Amino acid sequence: MTTAPRVDIADTRGQTTALTVTGDLDLQAVAVFHHTVADVLSEHPTVILDLTGVTFCDSSGLNTLLRLRRRAQEVGGRLVLVAPPRQMLRLLSVTGAVSVFTIHGSLAEAWEAIPASDPPPTA
Rank of each mutant, 00 (worst) to 15 (best):
I48C: 00
L79T: 01
L66W: 10
P85C: 09
T36G: 01
E74I: 07
M88L: 09
D39S: 14
G14Q: 09
L25K: 07
A18D: 08
T55G: 09
H35V: 05
E109T: 11
T46V: 08
D58P: 02
A123I: 11
D8S: 11
E109H: 10
V82C: 04
V100C: 08
F56V: 00
A18Q: 06
E43K: 12
A83E: 05
R6Y: 04
H104N: 04
T16D: 01
T95Q: 08
D58N: 05
A108T: 15
T12Y: 10
A83C: 06
G23W: 06
V40A: 08
R13Q: 12
R86K: 14
Q15Y: 11
L25I: 13
V30E: 01
D39H: 14
S106W: 05
A83W: 02
T95R: 04
V32R: 10
S42M: 10
S59V: 04
T64H: 10
Q15G: 00
V94K: 01
A38D: 11
L91A: 12
V75H: 09
T95F: 11
T95V: 06
G14A: 14
T20I: 06
A38M: 05
Q28Y: 14
T52M: 04
R69W: 05
R6E: 12
T17G: 07
A123Y: 12
L25D: 00
V80M: 12
A108E: 14
G61L: 14
L49Y: 06
R13A: 15
Q28V: 09
L92E: 02
A10P: 00
I48F: 01
L81I: 06
A38Q: 09
Q73R: 15
L19D: 03
V32W: 12
T122Q: 13
H44A: 13
T3H: 08
L27V: 13
G77K: 06
E112N: 14
P120W: 00
T3R: 14
A116R: 15
T3W: 02
P45W: 04
L92F: 15
T55I: 04
P119R: 02
P85T: 05
P115W: 06
A31L: 11
T3I: 15
L89H: 11
F101G: 02
D50H: 02
P119M: 05
F33L: 05
R6M: 08
T55E: 12
T55H: 04
S59H: 04
T20Y: 06
E74R: 10
E109N: 09
V47M: 02
G61N: 05
T55A: 15
L81E: 02
R71A: 08
R6H: 11
I48H: 02
S93E: 14
C57M: 15
G105V: 01
E112K: 14
T55F: 07
Q28E: 09
T20V: 15
L27P: 00
D24N: 07
A113T: 10
G23E: 02
H44G: 02
D24V: 13
L65K: 09
A83R: 05
E43G: 14
G61E: 07
V80H: 04
V82N: 00
Q73T: 12
R6D: 09
L79S: 02
A4R: 10
L91C: 03
T20C: 03
A29C: 06
